[in-house]
Design a protein around this nucleic acid. Structure first.
Lengths: 126, 126
DNA sequence: CGGAATCCGATTGGATACTG
DNA sequence: CAGTATCCAATCGGATTCCG
């Protein structure tokens, strides 16, 4: 994939908004983390538990990216054991709507897709 | 990532519909291909041109996956140079709606995100 | 508690060459 | 035209260890 400069912005191809946002939420974890946060405020360890299967590395990495892009707000409270909380920003909160639509679609079409996948090729039915 | 059997379906964790669908449309190309197709019928070479930057390998691979899952229909016409056309199935067509919502969100928030990313750390302002 | 750092296997995906 | 096949570099991402 070509590198695209900061000021550059192709008409409607490589560097179009959709493409760049797709790179942002492209990871398997981003969407799940945003969904887990919703309108709640969660600690690092909470997220680690709620987003089942994520490693601490990926959680950190994804949260950092979301924070950098202004979708997640990180708050550190300097207590004895450090307390770090994450919540969606106003912008991040707006993202939950289209994602919710996608989630509903997934639930609606899950069975159909799995059926299509199963039927796609019955290895050998003589 | 653990493997999940066909009949298995965790309550709301690893194997939930959203998770599996995310794996499906997770690739950077799936969404773009579905968007390129829309309600149109396109040939392989058309798609190769419209989805800017995709390699022929990834186009084939992604189309195969979409076909397997019943979202895309592949039609072969045995002419002298073979003609292969792709279009969205009824199910595939329903996917364009939530994706469109996501696209609108991207356009709306693109500038803001890029700004946040830029401001996130001014390397050194003395 | 909330990470950072390192190691390293698995997967992704482009480039290229060949085929019916 | 519409692929298939192979090679290989880069990235992803889990496991583990260490730190303030």
């Amino acid at each position: 994939m070509r590198e695209i400069g900061p000021g550059e912005l192709d008409p409607y191809q490589q560097g179009c908004p959709t493409r760049r946002i797709l790179d942002l939420i492209g990871g398997r974890w981003t969407v799940l983390i945003v969904g887990a946060l919703g309108s709640a405020t969660l600690r690092f360890s909470d997220l680690l538990r709620r987003v089942d299967g994520i490693s601490q590395k990926m959680l950190t990495q994804t949260l950092r990216a979301l924070e950098r892009d202004g979708l997640v707000i990180r708050t550190v409270t300097a207590e004895v054991p450090v307390k770090v909380e994450y919540r969606l920003s106003a912008a991040g909160l707006t993202l939950t709507e289209p994602l919710k639509a996608l989630e509903l679609w997934s639930i609606d079409h899950f069975a159909g897709i799995m059926a299509a996948r199963r039927d796609h090729e019955i290895p050998d039915s003589t």
